[in-house]
């Protein structure tokens, strides 16, 4: 590293870099930690709504959260057997 680079490095404000790195990292970490619960919650509530109308096998329900840069997508995959009887809406 040349003396010029060394001086230049020292002069660059590092706090804004720290701030930006933290903002990006924590946005991601909060999503990961928070959503693991959210997915479980959504799964249960979606199941409850479906079960009101159709008999479904709990193991045939997939709820997935895909996290993207700008948007996240929630994928809900529910297998309804052909033999499932429609329950009468109360």
């Amino acid at each position: 590293m040349s003396l010029f680079q060394f001086l230049n490095f020292n002069r660059r404000n590092t706090a804004p870099v720290a701030r930006e790195r933290l903002q990006v990292l924590l946005a991601h970490e909060r999503a990961t930690v928070g959503h693991s619960d959210l997915v479980g919650l959504l799964r249960e509530e979606i199941l409850a709504v479906i079960a009101k109308h159709v008999a479904v096998d709990r193991d045939r329900v997939q709820v997935k959260m895909e996290k993207g840069e700008i948007v996240s997508t929630l994928e809900v995959d529910i297998e309804i057997p052909a033999t499932a009887s429609l329950r009468k809406a109360s």
Binding site: N13, T14, A15, P16, A18, R19, L22, Q23, L26
Partner: peptide, 16 residues
């Protein structure tokens, strides 16, 4: 150091 831009400022930490 915060004033110099070498340390996170109070408002940075609070915002985060």
């Amino acid at each position: 150091r915060a004033e110099r831009g070498d340390m996170l400022k109070v408002e940075d930490v609070l915002e985060i």
